[in-house]
Amino acid sequence: MSTSTDSKIRIQSEDFSVTEEIETMKKVSRNIGGITTFLGTGRELSKGENITKLDFEHYPKMAEKKMEEIREKAVKDFGIIDMSIIHRIGPIDIGENIVLIVAAGEHRQETFKACEWAIAELKRTTPIWKRETTSNGEVWVQDTP
């Protein structure tokens, strides 16, 4: 599990600072003119049930590999300058940070597109699973679009 803040792809149990991640990205190039971020956070309600606890599990090595593939494809296909993707695992409280995508480019248009594509692709291809605990018990989420 990588925890170095220099790495553009990280899976970690500890929280991250959105501001620090943006500042790190800004240092990549003086040509960056726009940065789009997506921050996913722990939501309390799921299908009408109050969630009391969230827990994330991943497949080490494969998850990092898939996230790196997303980063490389985003840079190539959308013409952005760089992207970082950070996902937390383990127990996460309601309201806490879960996932952050930072897309940096010369202009805003490509960063919006790259960021939206990357979070959808992450959900589709990256072996990370979410377990929700509600008053009805624990359930591994399998059908989140």
Binding site: G40, Y59, I98, V99, I119, K123, P127, W129, W140
Partner: peptide, 12 residues
């Protein structure tokens, strides 16, 4: 060989 249920990482 790994057996993987449908993924649910990221957020909605």
């Amino acid at each position: 060989v790994a057996f993987l249920p449908p993924f649910s990482g990221g957020t909605k």
